Amino acid sequence: MFFALFITALTSCSIENDDSVTYFIEVLPVESAEVPEQFIYGETYEISMTYNRPTSCYEFSDFIYEINGQERTIAVVNTFYVSESAACNPDSVEMTASFNFKVTSNETYFFKFYQGEDDQGEDQFLIVEIPVVE
């Protein structure tokens, strides 16, 4: 449900003047995340996520990054180019996307990496707790 509204709003984007849809924005599940065991207040850390790109017509676009207190919910967003789909390499490829995170609090952070939906349509997350030391 977290990403349903976002996906609905962005899945019909067109970059041409005609009525045909030439690309879609898609949130892809995170397979794993590389994070430090602890943070030091005031430092900046690279957070990396691994996900599977379904075909060569997918390209990394951005992250969805939601802040709620000490909780950070993160998802990987890709663009799927419909107009190029006939020429896509259909092989799934493991990809890595990263961002820098600056520690601005002395409290423990909770990262929730989006991993897709279960059979009942409920969002699933890889949850990682990272304490902050001084």
Score class of each variant (00 low, 15 high):
Ala4Pro: 06
Ala4Thr: 14
Leu5Gln: 15
Phe6Glu: 06
Thr8Arg: 15
Thr8Val: 10
Thr8Cys: 14
Ala9Glu: 15
Ala9Val: 15
Thr11Ile: 13
Asp18Asn: 13
Asp18Gly: 10
Asp18Lys: 01
Thr22Trp: 07
Thr22Tyr: 08
Tyr23Cys: 11
Tyr23Glu: 06
Phe24Ala: 15
Ile25Phe: 11
Ile25Ser: 06
Val27Asp: 01
Val27Gln: 07
Leu28Pro: 08
Val30Lys: 00
Val30Leu: 01
Glu31Ile: 09
Ala33Pro: 02
Ala33Ile: 07
Val35Leu: 14
Pro36His: 07
Pro36Asn: 07
Glu37Tyr: 12
Glu37Ser: 12
Ile40Ser: 03
Ile40Cys: 02
Tyr41Asp: 02
Gly42Asn: 09
Thr44Met: 05
Tyr45Phe: 10
Glu46Arg: 12
Glu46Asn: 11
Ser48Ile: 03
Thr50Lys: 09
Asn52Glu: 12
Arg53Asp: 03
Arg53Trp: 04
Arg53Thr: 13
Thr55Lys: 11
Thr55Val: 09
Cys57Met: 14
Tyr58Lys: 08
Glu59Asn: 08
Ser61Phe: 15
Phe63Lys: 00
Ile67Ala: 14
Gln70Asn: 14
Arg72Gln: 11
Thr73Met: 01
Val76Gly: 04
Val76Ile: 13
Val76Lys: 01
Thr79Leu: 02
Tyr81Gln: 00
Ser85Ala: 13
Ser85Glu: 12
Ser85Thr: 09
Ala86Glu: 13
Ala87Met: 14
Cys88Val: 02
Cys88Leu: 14
Asn89His: 05
Pro90Arg: 06
Ser92His: 04
Val93Leu: 02
Thr96Cys: 02
Thr96Gln: 07
Ala97Leu: 04
Ser98Glu: 04
Phe99Pro: 05
Asn100Val: 07
Asn100Leu: 07
Phe101Ala: 01
Phe101Ser: 06
Thr104Ser: 10
Asn106Ala: 08
Glu107Asn: 10
Glu107Leu: 07
Thr108Asp: 09
Tyr109Trp: 08
Lys112Cys: 00
Phe113Val: 00
Tyr114Arg: 02
Gly116Lys: 04
Glu117Trp: 06
Asp119Phe: 09
Gln120Tyr: 09
Gly121Cys: 05
Gly121Leu: 09
Asp123Leu: 02
Gln124Ile: 11
Phe125Glu: 00
Ile127Leu: 03
Val128Thr: 10
Glu129Arg: 13
Ile130Tyr: 05
Ile130Asp: 01
Val132Gln: 00
